[in-house]
Design a protein around this nucleic acid. Structure first.
Lengths: 237, 237
DNA sequence: TATTATTGTCACGAATTGAGACAATAGAAT
DNA sequence: ATTCTATTGTCTCAATTCGTGACAATAATA
């Protein structure tokens, strides 16, 4: 949810929201940005609303910038959740009250919402999560150790993961899950975290090189007592 | 667009619509159901609106039943179109006027619409297209010979095709593009029409059989002067 | 009974993949 | 300096899959 004011009700398309699953990768873990609201223990995906004259895709870009400080993120829409019982009434009432806002004034926020879901792959290093007016934290959580999420947000994450696993090669190449240059081992660890399987080192390396998506750079002297690995980057095209 | 009355404005979620790309297969051609409005030469995908307390998916099922008479269709959502300039103002005004309806009364139909797009694979044989109150025809058109479609509907069809081509095996098995029993040749022709490529007969047959998705039945005596082909059906699971 | 078009399957080389072996090497230990 | 250790890049070889043509089987027709 984004910064809101009472006037918001008339500025936005009613009953329409978006939610975003922002993936990051650190060490060997796939993580997701999750927000927690002030004084509530209510956890949610970063989301927001669409202004009356705003492109849907632009609205998501705008909201994501407010939360991560990041611009120019490659966002991919993956599903629209439209069940009739998708409303924030109960948790949202709590959130409003605990923030000193009147549920009557913000009644529109308690109603049914259709939510268009997006995912993004971003570089963990680049993000300085910025909590907004309603939330007191915006933090990374490992995908396999998420806090209990409000509404159907756990289902949204699950669907995002399923989507991501399909045609992962192309998606990783377009996103920014890894830093600009990375080793083959880091790339393999990213694959393994996303697919939740172990992969064979030699087969993986051969396959990656045969995809013609990688450019090889100078070696990285890691400080470890062993042969130094090459660095690679994705060929953007 | 579905049957409407002035009261519709209050029954539906504003600014939200769906459009459906209904694929059928006949002979060697992939076809799509397209509607034409009375006295207008305006062509559009079958679409409609979502009632205030209706699941999004149910709304699409309901609309599709109104148009094709078919129930229990496997629908797959594939994208939500949300550009700010998506409105029906110009063509819709024409449609309303040519149907003796007042654009003032139906003003809500002229505004911006977010549209959730679905596709379905149905058996060409089963459909008796039923035009509704506003349209005078609902007919099959080959995908490569569509009439000029209103708004961004041509783009919606293109995206539906792209989606369909990805992981086609599973999608064909779940849908009903072919009759319950079909020959290997018919199956190959369906693949070729969708992918818009020629496939090698022997390789195709081997690959299909190795997928373990097909059940073999008795032979079909086609009347042709040659060996009779087996019939197959998809193993539903 | 011979002819013809089409179908199901096999055969064989080419390409891809699974899985282990091994040399190269950057730093740590001696 | 020399040896040791962990990791990396590549090679090898068998197993599997794929592209392609060959060929026998066969339903209707001539």
């Amino acid at each position: 949810m984004q910064k809101i004011s009472p006037s918001t009700a008339t500025d936005h398309l009613p009953h329409l929201a978006y939610d975003s699953v922002i993936f990051g990768f650190s060490g060997t873990q796939l993580k997701i940005l999750i927000m927690e609201y002030h004084n509530t223990h209510i956890f949610a995906l970063p989301g927001g609303f669409v202004q009356k004259n705003e492109h849907l895709n632009d609205a998501v870009r705008r909201g994501l910038k407010e939360r991560t400080g990041l611009d120019n993120i490659h966002l991919e829409q993956f599903y629209t959740f439209g069940d009739a019982d998708r409303n924030n009434a109960e948790p949202m009432r709590t959130i409003l009250v605990n923030n000193g806002l009147s549920p009557e004034k913000y009644h529109w926020m308690l109603e049914r919402f259709i939510s268009v879901a997006y995912y993004a792959l971003i570089n963990y290093q680049d993000v300085v999560p910025q909590p907004d007016a309603l939330s007191d934290s915006c933090r990374w959580y490992p995908v396999n150790a998420l806090p209990p999420l409000m509404m159907d947000h756990a289902g949204i994450v699950e669907k995002a993961l399923q989507t991501l696993r399909d045609n992962l090669d192309r998606k990783l190449a377009r996103g920014n899950l890894l830093p600009p240059k990375f080793t083959m081992k880091e790339l393999q660890q990213a694959y393994e975290a996303i697919l939740d399987t172990k992969l064979l080192r030699t087969t993986f390396q051969r396959r990656m090189l045969s995809l013609n998506l990688l450019e090889r750079h100078e070696k990285q002297y890691s400080g470890g007592a062993h042969k130094a690995p090459y660095l690679y980057s994705f060929i953007k095209g």
